[in-house]
């Protein structure tokens, strides 16, 4: 009985996996840069009210983070429209979680993005016009925007990360104390070993 249950489960998983791999991706009906946008929702609006925006052409702007991942003729990029995207590169004050949307764009449009946000950089501020999908049929049900227009509004820049002198001094002092204790511990440990 147990074997039969496991066999059925294995078959179901295998069938679903194969179906997922070969499932034909529907071709987007809307292409071209002449589509009229129906609004400029934030990523928060899109996540909280996905049905309201599903299938509509929207304007979206945010900082490109991580990297642009090319997949053939198209590419994935991730645009964060959180408070950090509106900050200057030298402003690293905290302002909550990151928030953003995944964008699927033709490679030639995505190639405009040169700098993506990470520890050392504030990424390009990118504006896209595209179709929002609450659960994209082409991309496994992911929430995404299929961009038909993309422009870099503000180029990214390096973030200056200065080394603090106070921290360097603290690191040196603590390391000396730690090394002293380790030497003491080792001497006692060896002495105990010899005595045993």
């Amino acid at each position: 009985m147990r074997r039969r249950v496991l066999r059925v489960l294995r078959c179901a998983l295998l069938a679903a996996t194969l179906a997922g791999l070969v499932w034909p991706a529907p071709v987007l009906a809307a292409t071209g840069a002449t589509l009229a946008s129906l609004g400029s929702p934030s990523s928060g609006d899109l996540v909280e009210h996905p049905a309201q925006w599903d299938g509509k052409v929207i304007d979206f702007q945010g900082e490109a983070v991580g990297e642009v991942m090319r997949r053939g003729d198209s590419a994935w990029l991730h645009l964060n429209d959180d408070a950090y995207s509106r900050k200057a590169a030298d402003d690293i004050a905290l302002a909550g979680y990151n928030a953003g949307q995944a964008v699927w764009a033709p490679s030639e449009l995505a190639a405009q993005v040169k700098i993506c946000g990470d520890y050392s950089h504030r990424g390009d501020l990118v504006h896209v016009v595209g179709i929002f999908h609450a659960a994209c049929p082409e991309h496994g049900g992911d929430m995404d925007i299929h961009a038909v227009k993309l422009e870099v509004v503000l180029p990214g820049s390096p973030i200056a990360r200065a080394v603090s002198g106070v921290r360097a001094a603290a690191a040196a002092a603590l390391s000396l104390v730690a090394a002293g204790l380790w030497l003491l511990w080792r001497r006692r440990h060896r002495a105990r070993g010899r005595a045993a």
Partner: peptide, 21 residues
């Protein structure tokens, strides 16, 4: 990532001080 490296020196030294102490 020099600043981050310093953070780890401080933190590991604190662990060794506490542990060996």
């Amino acid at each position: 990532e020099w600043s981050v490296a310093l953070d780890f020196v401080i933190s590991s030294a604190a662990c060794f001080i506490c542990g060996f102490g």
